[in-house]
Structures are given as C-alpha cells and as structure tokens.
Design a protein around this nucleic acid. Structure first.
Length: 676
DNA sequence: TTAGGGTTAG
C-alpha cells in the first residue's frame, strides 16, 4: 500500500489590512452591547477623521437607527449607502428593509426589496421583508411572500419561521399560526429552540394556554425564554396559580430567573392577593439585584396595593427615584380601590405638578377613584381636562367611569347625554354603568334601553341580565323578571361559581360554597357552627319572624366566604388581620356575618372582592352601600308582598344562584329598624 | 468584521 505523498501547503500572500477595519470592529462591539447612540457618534467621528465607510460599516449603523427610531438619520444613511455604491450588497439591503419596517415605512422597505435583482433573491432578504410585514401586523402579506419564496425554490430556514410565527398575536390569527406550526414540523424547525419558543408565545397570545402548556411539556430542551414565555403566558391569561406552580418548578431546575420571570410572578401574586408569596418574591428581587428595575418596582406597588398593604405600596413608591406615569397609576389605583378617593386625587395633582404627563390609563384610574368616592365635580373637571389640557381623546373606558360617576349621583339624564355625545362608539361597559345607575335610582324605562344596547354588545355577560332582573324585581314587575329568566335559560347562561381563598404560609387555600374538600373541613365547620350560635345569641330576632327565617335557613348552603373566614380564624393568632379574597362580589349575607363576627371575636377582616376592599372592624365595614341593599331587600321581604326567595339575592347575583336569607340578616335588619 | 428572530408593567 503506497503512502500518499504529503506536500507542504503553499503560504497565502499576506492581505493588506483595511484601514476601516478597526472602526468596524468597534462598531460591532457597540452594536452587540446595544450602545446604539454611541455607535452613531462613532460614525460621525469616523467621517470627521476622513475614513470612508464600507459595506461592513452600514449594517451596524442602520440597526442603530432602527432601534433608536430615527427615520431621518436612517434616510440620510441610505443616501450615504447609495453615494458609496454599497447599495447592491445583500446584507445592506436586508438591513435597510429591516430598518424601514421598524419605522413602519413598508413602502420604502418594499421598494428596496423589489429592487433586488432576481439572481440575488436571497433568503435573508425575504426573511427581513417577512418580519417587516409581521412587525406591522400585515400577516397575510408575510404569508404571501412565504408562498412566493417556496414557489421560487428558495431555502427556508428557522428565521423565516420565526418571522412568520411572531406575527400571529391575536386569537383570530390562530388558524394561520396552526398552519405555520404544521409547516415548521414538516421542515423540522420545531426542534429549533427559538422556533419552539416562538410557537409557544404564539399560542399564549392567541389565548390557547393549554396547547402552549402541552408544547412546553413536550419540549426536550428549555431555556430561560421558554420558562418566561410560559410564566408570562399564564400570568397574562389570568392563571395565577399556575404561574406560582411553574415558578416553583423552575427554581427546582436551578434555572436563574430574570426580571421578566419575576414580573409574571409578582403580577400573579397581585391577582391572587397572595401577599406572603409576593413578599418572598420581593426578597428574591433584592437578592438577585433587580431592585432598580422599574418594571418590577411598579408591579410590586400594584401587588401590595391589591393585597391590601397600602403602607408597603406607598413606601416602595416613595423610595423610587424616577417615578413614571405607570408608578403613579399603580399607587393612585391602590388608594382608589381602597376607597381613599381624596388621597388618590391628591396624588394625581401631585403627579402633574412634578411634571409627569398623564396618559389615558392614569385618567381611567383617577376617574374611577372619583366615582368610588363620590367626587363628582373633581371627576367632571378631570374628564374635561383630558381633551382640553392634554389633548387626550376620551375613550369608552373613560366615558364608562363618568357615566358611573354621574349615574351614582342620580344625574341619569346627564349620563345619557354624555353617551349620546360620545365621539367613539359606546361599549358594553358604558351601557352597563348606566344600567347599574338605573338599579340604584330605580329607573326601569332607561334600564330597558341600556339593557338593549348592552346585551347586543356583550350577549354572554351574565351580570347585566342579573342587574335587569333585579331592577324588575325592585319595581315588582314580575313579568319582567320572568322574561329575563327565560332569556337566560334560552341562552344557556350560568353564573360562574363563587370562590373565596385565604393565603396561609405561602399556600393558597381555596373554598367553594358547601366545599368539604379542605383537610381541615371538620374543624372549619365546627368553628362555623360556633360562630353562628354566638351570632344568634347576641342577635335574636323577634318571635314573629323566627319561623319564617327557619324555612329559608334550612336550604342554605355554606358560602365560600364563611369557610374562608373560619379557616383564617383557625389558623392565625389573635390580633392578626385576616384577609380573604373573593372572585365575585361578596354576598350580603356573608357581609353581615363577617361584620358581626368581627365584633364577637374582636378581629379585623379584610375582604377583597371583584370590585373593592371591605375592611371589617368591631362590627362595622368600611363600605356603606351594602347596608343600603340589605335594608331595601329586607324591608320588602317583611312587607309581605315579596316575590320569593329569589329577590333576596346576594349583592353579587340573583336568587337561585346566590345568597340565602339567614337569621343573621333578620337580626341585622332589626338593628336597622331600630336605628330608623 | 456584515442580515433576519423568540419573553416585559397599569
């Protein structure tokens, strides 16, 4: 066997160093570190030092312009590109397409794309144009280009998929997204981690969290972005408990979270009212060194405010060196939901004085704070200032606040006038606010009009049917009540089950009505029995009402609120405040019960329901309107011409689904009667 | 040496 003759490799001639190279190297570094303004400054220095840019120089600069959103500088650079004859370079064309797309100048981008000679039709240019379209929500254009690409037999790569899939961000684009998923699998790109992450995000944004989770579970490799996408996906779709569970799993894999991860976790704690978990996450934020992250700080303010700890929320807010409009919104909203309208309004004025320009969202927050606190003139003034002073066109969300504000005050005509004068189409919330006002002020005629509109806009929102039914019931129009019931039955609408929960030792303890699944069930029910008898002892209704209440009491289920209260009392030390969360509104029965219990056991309770906080202390609640509802319902019940148990509804719903009359309320009404 | 992409608050 002959041994192949080995020849020495000939030495290549040394290439002369291009003088521009060091500049380009520095530009590359700056671009990598995202120091875009510095990159542009360096370019100016380069020109001043009489060094000419070459084809390698421009992509860095164009990218910098795109990121800094500087369209004028961008077009100047384009002129430089043409002057230096670099235009034909495919990389530069790609950068130009991408830059113009970021400025939403799709015509310019497309012109650059169309000028590319046929022989140079490279995948990278197609990819840039496809991403440009999806970035500007032109998904179908992107898909058309993808089709063209395949017809021309061009190579499709994972970046093509990324560009396409990232365009599907709303539920109606789900079909396109699923097709693309299939396409990706066909090409084998679904194994690419970036593509898989992108598909996961697509499903999450289209509201298909379960499909996203399936994809997540099937992935053989996961990076930080995968975890973040799933965690934020759960958080955005309101699956707060899943967020906490997934975060726990993530920590077990030793994956280090980043601010994006923690943001999802903190916002879920806010939704759940899980303050002790939130506090733990705050400690982690500090230990990871993310304390200066404004996104996280704002989320923490919101979390503490929504967990009822306004003191901590305020402390974090006061410590912030740079308060953005979002920080102000978080703290104003916090005071708003606790009913401290005056403080909320004061903070808004303080914000304006400090030079922060209000945006549409902060106006929603301050208007709703005004409405909860009955600050009518202040609210009206803010509404006017929105357009006159700040040039912000009020949207339906602002109008619904104002309708609520005027409506509560009984100024129904003005509220109706406002709706008529709206420049934008009123949405369900606007008509819904009017409907609620009609309930308070017993205006059946206007209620029917509002209902007609609201049911057309939100046919499946059960709350509005309930409202109208109660309005009819108040007016003793039983035909009307029946009409609404039939309508609900025909449309197969069912009330979402109410649940209450208490956060204890970092775990969320959830209760449904009549629930017996909790490990401490026996103790909880024993505690409730004890409380009920204590309550009866101090509030014995007069003889003539007793029989009547018994018949109703027998059919009573144990509400979730009561179970949660009993659980809290069993597991916490005396003197500590007990916080209960309720997904819907607290029912009047439980409201009365908790009030009395707070006096009997001398404890403070905080109940956060769907709309506000109730602070119970020594037999009194911070909110006043529940008493009014109760008083009215009971008065009718005792007057004898009651329409049945159905009308004795919980504040959150109507009869057959919710509150059942108990001796407790009878007792309470005696108080009310006595007070009268 | 250069392009295209995935996660972020109220």
């Amino acid at each position: 066997m002959s041994i192949p003759h080995l020849r020495p490799t000939p030495k290549l001639p040394l290439k002369l160093a291009n003088p521009t190279t060091p500049w380009n190297c520095r530009l590359r570094e700056l671009s990598k570190q995202r120091q875009y303004p510095q990159a542009l400054t360096l370019y100016i220095h380069m020109l001043r030092s009489s060094f000419s840019p070459n084809t390698f120089t421009f992509p860095f600069l164009l990218k910098s312009c795109a990121h800094l959103l500087l369209p004028l500088t961008g077009s100047q650079l384009h002129a430089h590109v043409i002057r230096t004859g670099s235009q034909p370079d495919p990389y530069i064309r790609t950068s130009l397409i991408s830059m113009y797309s970021k400025f939403s100048l799709l015509t310019n981008a497309r012109k650059v794309f169309d000028d590319i000679p046929h022989w140079q039709n490279l995948t990278i240019c197609y990819n840039a144009m496809i991403s440009g379209y999806t970035f500007n929500s032109e998904v179908m254009e992107a898909v058309a280009l993808f089709r063209q690409m395949r017809e021309e037999g061009l190579v499709v790569n994972s970046v093509t998929m990324l560009g396409l899939v990232s365009g599907c961000t709303v539920p109606k684009q789900l079909t396109v997204g699923v097709c693309l998923h299939g396409c990706g699998v066909k090409f084998g790109f679904h194994r690419d981690l970036s593509v898989a992450n992108c598909l996961l995000t697509m499903y999450v944004k289209c509201g298909e969290v379960e499909i996203a989770r399936k994809l997540f579970d099937e992935m053989c490799e996961r990076d930080l972005i995968t975890w973040n996408a799933m965690i934020s996906g759960y958080a955005q779709n309101g699956h707060a408990r899943h967020v906490l569970e997934l975060y726990r799993q993530m920590k077990l894999t030793k994956m280090r979270p980043d601010p994006v991860t923690l943001l999802g976790v903190v916002s879920s704690c806010a939704n759940l009212g899980a303050q002790s978990i939130g506090r733990e996450v705050e400690r982690q934020i500090e230990s990871f060194g993310f304390s200066s992250n404004t996104f996280l700080t704002n989320a923490l303010i919101n979390m503490y405010a929504r967990c009822g700890n306004l003191v901590r929320a305020r402390a974090i807010f006061d410590c912030m060196t740079e308060k953005s409009v979002i920080s102000w919104t978080a703290i104003i909203g916090g005071y708003g939901i606790h009913g401290h309208g005056e403080i909320a309004v004061g903070l808004f004025d303080e914000m304006v004085e400090s030079g922060v320009r209000p945006d549409k969202t902060v106006f929603v927050t301050v208007l709703s704070a005004c409405s909860h606190a009955g600050l009518i003139d202040k609210g009206l003034a803010y509404f006017d200032a929105m357009e006159m002073k700040y040039g912000l066109q009020p949207g339906p969300e602002h109008c619904s606040c104002l309708v609520d504000l005027l409506g509560r005050a009984g100024r129904l005509k003005e509220a109706m006038g406002l709706i008529k004068s709206m420049k934008v189409k009123p949405d369900g919330a606007v008509w819904g606010a009017l409907l609620s006002a009609c309930k308070i002020h017993k205006n059946v005629e206007l209620a029917e009009l509002a209902f007609e509109h609201v049911v057309e806009l939100e046919p499946t929102n059960i709350g509005y049917y309930v409202l109208l039914s109660n309005i009819y019931s108040d007016a003793e129009n039983f035909e009307g009540v029946l009409k609404v019931r039939v309508m609900m039955r025909e449309r197969k609408l069912r009330k979402e089950p109410g649940c209450s929960y208490v956060e204890y030792k970092g775990k969320v303890h959830l209760f449904y009505s009549g629930d017996r699944s909790h490990p401490q069930t026996e103790e909880i029910y024993r505690m409730l029995d004890k409380l009920e008898s204590l309550v009866k002892e101090i509030h014995q209704p007069p003889q003539k009402y007793q029989g009547r209440s018994e018949e109703v009491l027998n059919s009573a289920g144990v509400h979730s609120e009561k179970l949660a209260i009993a659980f809290g009392l069993l597991n916490t030390k005396s003197g500590t405040e007990i916080t209960v969360m309720k997904n819907l509104r607290v029912c009047v029965d439980c409201h009365a019960f908790i009030k009395l219990v707070s006096r009997i056991v001398n404890r403070q309770f905080v109940v956060r329901d769907a709309t506000r906080f109730h602070h119970f202390r020594d037999g009194v609640c911070s909110c006043k309107d529940y008493c009014k509802i109760l008083w009215y319902e009971l008065q009718r019940w005792f007057s004898g011409n009651n329409p049945g148990i159905d009308s004795l509804a919980g504040a959150s719903g109507i009869g057959p689904f919710c509150g059942i009359f108990s001796q407790l309320q009878l007792a309470l009404v005696m108080d009310v009667v006595a007070a009268k």
